[in-house]
Simulated scan of single mutants.
Amino acid sequence: MADALSTLHLDPGLVEKVQFRPFSLVEPDLGLPTSEVFAEPCAYWHSAALITFFPRREEELRTVNVEGSANVERTFSRHSRAGSRFIHISTAYQNGTGGGRAREDWPEPAHPSAFRNDYEHSKRMAEIQLSRSALVQNGDALVARLGVMVGHSGTGRALSDLGIYDFLRVIAMFARRTPGERVRFVCHPRAALHLTPIDGTVDRLLALAAGSFDRPVRHVVNRVTVPVADLFAAISAHLPVELVAVTAADVEAEPFSRFEAIVNMRCKYTSPYLRFEYDFECHDDASPPPVTPRILDLLISWYVREGLPA
């Protein structure tokens, strides 16, 4: 905790005020000593979630992300003091594969086939049930939809193995085993990622939580995106591999080599995010600072140097 506070340029002395309580999303009142936790008006951050893109995890995702979130909302509604606020951390990609602009509005139900994976669907369902709660009707709830979380914009440091880091880990494993290969990925012609460094994201989240909840659904994503071609170039600059963005027609004309097919198969849970063009409604007060080419290089180089398994 002290390390996190220091990394985010917060007062490390705050660690002395932090109290830890074990809890469970499936127990009544989360298994918490509610009289202590909710003794005063508070901002309750619900960030607990299961993040997995693997198949056959539907029931577990529903238990944690949907039913667990409902239990959190009920516990907060029963025990929180007047003036308390509820912040639900979601994902901008709950928009699924539907085209058009993703609005900062409460979502409608959709069939699981409208999403890239069951995780996205579970986050959509959690938002829908929150939208029907008294918290929303009373103006006491905020949903913050995050983009692709990455490390610190000043150091490049990351503690995650999700998102682009899972993709980078797989690429590095094959590049180091068979250096000098070219690997193509099918991408949308205008594919770009909303990379959001942790430090700027925390700053925006804290500001939103302290402000008005008159717009209760917010996209906390960079308005300036990172083109996939730039991401591929940054990775290729630090690993012995050439990553190339192509269209489905290109692959039809020149099928994947055996090596390319294997790498694509290993990236099959993260690479689908490269095949879409995303347009998230976003406003300046919720947009973290952009990921510049220098920051992108820092994020990739740190992970290649420090974050990858030996």
Rank of each mutant, 00 (worst) to 15 (best):
F23Q: 03
P33V: 15
V37Y: 01
F38Q: 11
W45R: 01
A48E: 04
T52K: 02
R57T: 14
V64P: 02
S69F: 00
S69G: 10
H79W: 10
R85N: 06
H88G: 08
S90M: 11
Q94F: 13
G98F: 04
G99E: 14
R103G: 06
R103S: 12
R103C: 11
D105V: 14
P112E: 05
A114S: 14
R116V: 11
R116D: 04
E127V: 11
I128M: 06
Q129E: 01
L135P: 04
L135W: 04
D140P: 03
L142W: 09
H152Y: 09
G156M: 07
A158K: 01
L162M: 13
V186G: 12
L193I: 08
L205V: 13
A210N: 07
V217E: 03
V220I: 14
A229S: 13
A229D: 13
D230S: 12
A233W: 02
A233Y: 03
P240G: 09
A249V: 15
D250A: 15
A253H: 10
E254T: 15
S257R: 08
S257L: 10
V263Y: 02
N264A: 06
P272C: 09
Y273I: 02
L274N: 08
H283N: 09
H283Y: 12
D285I: 15
P288A: 07
P289D: 15
P290G: 11
S301Q: 14
V304W: 01
P309Q: 09
A310T: 13
